[in-house]
Structure formats: C-alpha cells, structure tokens
C-alpha cells in the first residue's frame, strides 16, 4: 500500500495531540502500517457514505418542505416507482461497498499472517498483576535471559512474542507496531510485529485487569541488529558486583531484608520469581511497569511507599532507616 496517504494522514493528525510513540496512526512497522492504510481507506469510504446518506436526508427534507409549501400536486405512483428505484440502488450500493471493504480486509489479513518461515526472534511475555515478565529463550539454558517491564527487540526482522498470563487476563498492545493480543492464563498465543527503525515505543496493557490496569505500561526498545546483539550479551551477564562498601552494604540489606523474598538478582542467592527480576534494574528507562521514570529519587519513593504511587500493587511499603536506604539505592543504582 502506498505510503503517501499514510504520510499525509500522519502529518494532518500530528497537531491533534497524542504522543507519536504510542499511536496507531504513527506506524513504525509493516504490521501497523498495513492496518493504518486499511484505516485510511475505510475512513475515506466511510466519510463518503456518511455524507451521501446525511446529504440525501437533508435534500429529502428540504424537497418535501418545498413541495408542501408550493402546494404541488403529488403523483403517488410515480413517487413510488422513483423511491423503489432509489432504495434498491441504495441497497445494492451498500452491498457492493461492504463487499469491497470485506475483500480489502481479506487482503490485509493475508498480509498479516505470521511469517514463520523467515528468520525471526522469539520472546516470551507473561502478564502479571501489574507488571510484565519477559523471557528471551535460548536452547542453552545459560544463555537465557529473564527480564521485566521492558521489551527489547531488534529492528528489521520479525519478532514473535509468545504471550500468556500468570493470573488474570491482560492484553499486550504496542499501537505503533501491531494490534493487541490477549494474555489469558493457560493459553499461549503469538503476537508478531517488525520494527523499521530503532527507538522506544510505548505499549500498554489493554484488558482490564484490576486496580492498576492503568499503570501497566511496557516500553518497547528497538535496537539495530548489531546493537541488539550487544544488549543481549550484557543482559546475559549476572548482576554487576557492588563497586564500593556502601553498595556492598546495600546488597546485604537486599538479601537479608524483605526484598529477596520477592525479587531475583542473578549472581546472588536471591531467586524469587514473585516480583519483577532486578538484575539490570539500573539500565531500565522506567520503574513499576512504566509508571515512573527510572532515577534515584523515584526509586526511593517507590521503595518507601509504593501504595502511594500505585495503590493496590503487591509490593508492600518498606520502612528503611535513611542510611540503609542510601546503601540500597547505591547498590540498585549499580545494577546496569
């Protein structure tokens, strides 16, 4: 499908608000692009049909008023013939237009079939209330990566995301990249997309899943293939060793306090899968599934009172004396 109407549409809507990195009208890959062009086609046809219908209504009303005002004589038989023809033509046109739309949709569906034969990347996403766990599978178990709350993909090749849920029904939706897929417990489904250029795209949970459905976002980070290999290599490494005594004390606090009961950091004894994995926490752009930008202050606020930021979340408030908090932040800040 030609890119020109796409471009024109995007330009036209650019001024109408919305963030470009989380919009179905700013496609960044072939899947979303196919849907966007289908949308513009449908919009054009719909507008024409609508204007025709409302126009016919307005004309009919105006003409009838004029006829009554002028006291013109009516010819019921002729009127009946004309109306029969008009309604029949209208009905036939409706059928033709709808058929045309259906055929166009079939073409789009064909273009959007999962390209399993081509080279592709497989990633597994599991939805939880209210965070995402991401697994990058590999035949060799030591090369597998478990991550959370940020999805890293390469550009230029198809990405097949196998989605499932741990608890209730969620839905993964990255509007720039593809339509959504529901994450249903005990079902595994596949969402596929391909990203054209590197960048960070917004995704969000799109199926009501409880109190914090609104704050379950997932940044999708697309790397050029070479950069992606580098990222994957870094992700496979265990957690960075603490650089100074304060960070070492922070690690002690992490392991001996409530943190290790729910969070895993590879390379340490902490291995719980209840909450998000924290091995490379400091390299993430956001905290708490896209709720806060990552940073020392936000992390401190989140640790001390997550219920204020995301009421209902499973993470409890952790009261730490200031020195311990500083140490913990120093350690977590080093987990690149």
């Amino acid at each position: 499908m030609s890119a020109r109407p796409l471009l024109l549409g995007c330009v036209a809507l650019a001024g109408c608000g919305g963030a470009r990195n989380q919009s179905a009208l700013a496609p960044e890959g072939p899947v979303a692009g196919e849907v966007a062009s289908l949308w513009w086609f449908a919009l054009a046809v719909a507008t024409a049909v609508y204007l025709a219908t409302v126009g016919a209504l307005a004309w009919a009303a105006w003409r009838a008023r004029r006829r009554a005002a002028r006291g013109e004589a009516t010819d019921p038989a002729r009127d009946h013939r004309r109306m029969t023809v008009a309604v029949s033509v209208g009905g036939a046109l409706t059928v033709v237009i709808l058929l045309g739309f259906f055929v166009r949709d079939l073409a789009a569906a064909r273009a959007l079939r999962i390209p399993v034969t081509r080279d592709h990347v497989k990633i597994r996403v599991t939805g939880h209330q209210w965070w995402w766990s991401i697994e990058y599978p590999h035949p060799d178990p030591s090369q597998r990566v478990t991550d959370a709350n940020e999805l890293h993909v390469p550009t230029g090749i198809p990405v097949l995301v196998e989605v499932t849920s741990h608890d209730v029904i969620h839905s993964l939706w990255a509007p720039n990249l593809a339509g959504k897929k529901d994450l249903i417990p005990r079902y595994v489904d596949t969402l596929w997309f391909q990203v054209d250029r590197p960048g960070v795209y917004g995704a969000q949970c799109a199926e009501f899943c409880g109190h914090q459905h609104a704050k379950m976002a997932l940044p999708v980070v697309a790397h050029a293939p070479r950069d992606y290999a580098g990222w994957l290599a870094r992700a496979r490494r265990p957690a960075a060793e603490p650089s100074d005594s304060m960070a070492r004390r922070g690690r002690e606090i992490f392991l001996s306090g409530p943190c290790a009961l729910c969070h895993a950091i590879t390379g340490t004894p902490a291995g719980s899968r209840v909450g998000p994995e924290l091995t490379h926490l400091a390299s993430r752009r956001t905290l708490a599934a896209g709720t806060l930008p990552n940073g020392k202050g936000n992390l401190a606020a989140w640790i001390l009172d997550p219920q204020r930021i995301k009421p209902g979340t499973a993470m409890p408030a952790t009261a730490l004396p200031p020195a311990d908090l500083e140490a913990l932040l120093a350690y977590l800040g080093g987990l690149q």
């Binding site: 001996s256 306090g257 409530p258 009961l261 409890p316 408030a317 952790t318």
Partner: peptide, 8 residues
C-alpha cells in the same frame, strides 16, 4: 520477622 513486612 524482618523478612515479611508487618501488614503482609
């Protein structure tokens, strides 16, 4: 104690 927060 000290592992599981009080409210939990």
């Amino acid at each position: 104690g000290g592992r599981i927060p009080n409210e939990q």
